[in-house]
């Protein structure tokens, strides 16, 4: 049951990551590309980390619990740092005067 849950989480995370990668490649300009890079990657890695954390904790003992907490901490820090980084990059691009893409 829990194994199925973490499988679903990991697969879902991978779908997000795949989407992020496709987005980075396919979207038309810098700002739009930063969008999947920031959002989908954060979501994807959160899901994958969550799945891994649960998977590790399946065989429940103190060591594994600690490991899974560490994995969760990774997720937390990615959630903090990845959007900030994206924000800074976009911010810098706006200050540098990069025009956003307009259709047409």
């Amino acid at each position: 049951m829990l194994l199925a849950l973490c499988s679903i989480l990991i697969i879902l995370g991978m779908v997000f990551l795949l989407g992020g990668s496709v987005g980075i490649l396919r979207l038309p300009d810098f700002y739009t590309r930063m969008h999947p890079a920031g959002k989908l990657d954060s979501m994807g890695s959160l899901l994958v980390n969550l799945g891994v954390a649960i998977y590790v904790a399946l065989d429940f003992n103190l060591a594994n619990l600690l490991t899974s907490i560490k994995v969760l901490l990774i997720a937390v820090f990615i959630y903090l740092s990845s959007p900030t980084a994206t924000h800074c990059i976009v911010d810098a691009a706006i200050r540098a005067g990069l025009e956003p893409w307009k259709k047409g």
């Binding site: 740092s81 900030t84 924000h87 800074c88």
Partner: peptide, 18 residues
Amino acid sequence: WVPADIILKTISRFLIPF
């Protein structure tokens, strides 16, 4: 000078101890 970015400052202030 680049005006101080409140997001960046806050996050790094939070992260650096960790």
